[in-house]
């Protein structure tokens, strides 16, 4: 696929660029610490590699249709299942462990808040609230 017109130096230059970019992600990534920024940088490196090592930059355009179709399927999977995974309660289901944990955290926070405002009431625990119980819908 048009490889032969490029010499060894051409590919070595791309290799060095990729190596430097990955090194930058390794060194700067933990300093930046932002999830989206690090993953965006990795994605840019991946696209650069696909363009020049896999020759996508000179490939027939409709090959992109294959790849874009796969990405559409992927997004459908992501957004189709995101709600079920990210939420604790749906139309016919609830995730009791997560709900109960959140309840416990909320009560602990309220108890701490009361103890700060009214030291005389410190040690008196608030009622635990109603635990979520798994149900068969």
């Amino acid at each position: 696929m048009g490889n032969a017109e490029h010499g060894t130096n051409y590919y070595v230059k791309i290799y060095v660029t990729l190596l430097a970019a990955i090194a930058a992600v390794i060194i700067i990534g933990p300093i930046v610490g932002h999830f989206a920024v690090i993953m965006a940088a990795a994605l840019v490196i991946a696209v650069y590699k696909a363009s020049f090592f896999m020759h996508l930059n000179v490939e027939k355009h409709w090959i992109w249709l294959f790849l874009i179709t796969a990405l559409i399927c992927l997004f459908a999977l992501f957004f189709g299942s995101a709600k079920d995974i990210m939420m604790d309660e749906g139309v016919s289901w609830k995730r009791c462990n997560a709900i109960n944990e959140q309840n416990r955290e909320r009560i602990a926070e309220q108890t701490h808040h009361v103890a700060e405002k009214r030291p005389d009431l410190a040690g008196i625990a608030l009622p635990p609230g109603v635990d979520c119980v798994k149900q068969r819908f």
Partner: peptide, 26 residues
């Protein structure tokens, strides 16, 4: 040889994405 190359580049490309995901992003 080219077909093997395309496949191998893809395998590397996946690692380029998995590596920051599992090792760098804390």
């Amino acid at each position: 040889v080219e077909l093997c190359g395309i496949y191998w580049h893809f395998v590397d490309l996946v690692w380029i994405l998995l590596f920051p995901l599992l090792y760098i992003v804390k």
